[in-house]
């Protein structure tokens, strides 16, 4: 999905040249548009609203006279009729080739840079390439649509509780304030590591090597799958809200090892660049 295309903006207009609308109709129109995923501006003189820009617009009103001719190719005019306004918006969206609202469920990590220490744990942990570093080697979310819906796993490995998923059910992952007990999750992270024998990836690598060794003898793919599942189930039992489908969609052990090595190298490189440079000796 192209996330950078401009979405359609709908403007409810009740100013000069148009009738004012009763509150019930206004609410019905507004609600219908929001439920279909359209952003709506109720324009008026009393307070500021966002000014027009390159975003395509549908301006709906109960016109007392024909709407103005507009040379702006990004503006369409419509009727403020609650029964049809969502369909009008949908037609305008299609005409402008604006993104389809709701085509992608917005589930992705949001970094609280007041808390983040740039430790790169999240980059090292995520196997789906969600994280990267900016030109200043600062951690950032680069591929938010790679994130697995409902999976908050990376926030659980963050020692500073700096990773939020605003649609998550509970704090502090949902953005609520961070308590001392939340910070004790660092201990949980250590527990995961010790249980899994160092870290998740080294365990997976070890298991992969053991599985490969067995393959040489029996080539039993069912056993290899069972091994992988057992390992992932251990992780799931410690972080019960990681969806099973996320765990099952993890790459193969070999692919995990490769991705983990890549992420680790990227993280190490970023961390090395953060270290104070040694002053040259003369």
């Amino acid at each position: 999905m192209a996330l950078h295309d401009l979405p359609l903006r709908v403007v409810l207009y009740e100013g000069s040249g148009a009738e004012s609308v009763d509150a019930e109709s206004r609410w019905a129109a507004m609600n219908a548009l929001l439920e279909r995923g359209f952003a709506v501006t109720r324009a008026g003189a009393e307070r500021p609203v966002s000014p027009a820009d390159a975003t395509p617009m549908l301006v709906v009103a109960r016109w007392q006279q024909p709407p103005p001719d507009s040379a702006d190719a990004k503006v369409r005019w419509g009727s403020l009729d609650p029964a049809t306004v969502a369909e009008q918006a949908e037609a305008a969206r299609a005409e402008f080739s604006s993104p389809t609202p709701g085509a992608w469920r917005p589930w992705f990590p949001v970094i609280d840079y007041d808390r983040c220490t740039n430790c790169m744990q999240c980059l090292s942990f995520c196997l789906f390439g969600v994280y990267g570093v900016d030109p200043e080697k600062r951690i950032q979310v680069q591929n938010n649509d790679n994130c697995k819906t409902n999976c908050p796993a990376c926030s659980r490995v963050c020692p500073e509780a700096a990773i939020m998923f605003p649609k998550y059910k509970a704090g502090p992952i949902n953005g609520d304030v961070v308590s001392d007990s939340d910070l004790n999750r660092e201990k949980m992270k250590i527990d995961i590591s010790s249980l899994l024998g160092g870290d998740v990836y080294s365990l997976l690598r070890d298991r992969s090597e053991r599985a490969r060794s067995r393959f040489g003898k029996e080539r039993d793919s069912d056993k290899a799958l069972a091994e992988r599942q057992k390992c992932l189930n251990k992780l799931a039992s410690l972080a019960a809200d990681i969806p099973a489908e996320v765990l099952m969609s993890l790459p193969s052990p070999e692919e995990i090892a490769r991705k983990a090595a890549e992420a680790s190298a990227k993280a190490q490189s970023a961390l090395a660049d953060q270290s104070p440079r040694t002053a040259p000796t003369t």
Binding site: L3, H4, D5, L6, P7, M30, L34, E35, R36, G37, F38, A39, V40, T41, R42, A43, G44, A45, E46, R47, P48, V49, S50, P99, P101, G102, W104, P106, W107, F108, V110, N144, D145, P166, K167
Partner: peptide, 17 residues
Amino acid sequence: LPFEAVPDLCELSARRD
């Protein structure tokens, strides 16, 4: 009062709207 209503701030943020 005039106001802005958005379907989902998360979606707008992801899109850098």
